[in-house]
Design a protein around this nucleic acid. Structure first.
Lengths: 208, 208
DNA sequence: GTCTATACTTCGATAGAC
DNA sequence: GTCTATCGAAGTATAGAC
């Protein structure tokens, strides 16, 4: 059925199965026995590859952070893009948001992050810093630049950043926590549409 | 220290201690032994009052639902209030949101709901229906009425409902999941302020 | 209603043979 | 690197004496 799977190193198999199960049931609800069973080895063999269960989660988070840091826009790129006008910039913002969830693997890890954000200190701190605060700062700068270029009204740029970005967090929460069982493709299309409408609304309110 | 506590029936003590611990650590992370220890009885005695651990959670959720249904505005009240102008109505909306978290007990249960919304099917369905969908519908009707009364621009009322209300969900998530350790009073004040700013921004964008 | 005692299960993790 | 075997800890829940 999936002969690619047979050749994978055991460590990688453990990783993949863990992502799958953690995203589905949550970290605590998955036992080392269950992971081992699905990989096709005995539970004790897990410990030849990972120090303990927590270490598997850490490996997943390291992978996640690394993948996320690949994407994103440099400050210079952003500056240049703002010149093109706010409409294009928002379109791109939505696209970037979507692109960070662009593989089945990453989708599952996003889900895992969502449902373990409270229960795990490291995930929560990561979420606060990298998913909330850092993007808010970037958007604040962006709005500041737009104001300086007299593209939009001179409102508080931090307020604008929250007005724009909190909606993305809401959509994120709505899907990954409340509606995860729905079809992913459908969600992506809907999200893109909702985010576009939101940007359109916001822009109409602040454009000069 | 708290002599009121000594007289309380054991069932009530179990309830209170469970709320406290579940909100602090999450349902799964709390053992029946731990609840019993804190109440001052043996673990087996718990089962004289509640069928099992799950039944304690169900009792807490029943209490929560009942408390929430006490608040809220009747449709008639709302109609009358809209007449006073959108500013006053938004102010009231924010106050209602805050008032549903107005006791330490309710605050803890809100927290519990937040962190268990994924892990527990019943809580998730409750959240989806009562905390998200129902209020969105109410706000959609409210905006529809405002449009009919020519108080605001004739935009899509459902879009407006999401523009307004998703921010409340975001604030909710931000506090109860990401920032729970902060002082409650401070949070309440900050939230009220943020929600007011948001309403002000939205209103400026849609007022006729 | 609470106690002691205990049954039963599942968990994460380790030791040592192959 | 995988296996068998096993440990200790912790969990929910029940039975029966008081």
């Amino acid at each position: 059925m999936n002969n690619q799977n047979q050749k994978k190193p055991t460590k990688e198999k453990i990783f993949d199965v863990s992502v799958e199960l953690f995203a589905q049931k949550g970290f605590n609800a998955v036992s080392v026995r269950e992971i081992a069973r699905k990989v096709g080895i005995r539970e004790s063999s897990i410990y030849n590859h990972y120090k303990n269960k927590e270490a598997i989660l850490e490996a997943i988070m390291d992978y996640f952070k690394n993948e996320l840091s690949q994407g994103g826009l440099s400050v210079n790129d952003a500056e240049a893009l703002i010149e093109q006008g706010p409409e294009i910039f928002f379109e791109l913002g939505a696209k970037m948001y979507i692109e960070q969830i662009n593989t089945p693997q990453m989708e599952k890890i996003w889900r895992l992050v969502s449902i373990e954000t409270y229960h795990n200190d490291k995930i929560r701190e990561f979420f606060k810093k990298e998913i909330l605060e850092e993007p808010i700062n970037v958007w604040e700068n962006t709005f500041q630049t737009m104001i300086e270029k007299k593209m939009i009204k001179p409102l508080n740029p931090r307020t604008l950043a929250y007005e724009y970005y909190s909606f993305a967090i809401f959509l994120f929460f709505e899907y990954f926590v409340l509606e995860y069982d729905k079809d992913f493709k459908t969600y992506m299309d809907l999200t893109q549409e909702k985010m576009a409408k939101h940007a359109e609304f916001l822009l109409a309110a602040i454009k000069m």
